[in-house]
Amino acid sequence: MAKSNEPIWWSLFSAGGMVAAMILPVLIIITGILVPFGLVDDDPLNFERIYTALSQSYLIKLILFIVITLPLFHWAHRFRFTLVDVGLKSVSTLISILCYGGAIAGTIIAAIIFLRI
């Protein structure tokens, strides 16, 4: 029985799940509720302000990069299994390529954008 390469996808999936469960809700509260409803003053999401902060700190870039990319792999893995489970097992290789390929593409795009800032 062939040794599976699943661990690489599963570990990215798990890490993404962790980020999605623990960090995304906080970000949703900040960017989706507190700021738009005006519950915090001094305009924290001001473009110039964020852009300057990003361009000055590799740490912030890294954190945002992780927050954006790992959930992509979480999605890819979940969606792949969902599609296979609804009966698309015969095209499972194609599904894997599209799902993980999408996540990898998203990761590369995110990396390029962050490197340009």
């Binding site: 029985m1 062939a2 040794k3 599976s4 699943e6 599963w10």
Partner: peptide, 9 residues
């Protein structure tokens, strides 16, 4: 067996 695709994955 456990680490194969038919196993846990």
């Amino acid at each position: 067996l456990i680490a194969s695709h038919e196993g846990i994955w």
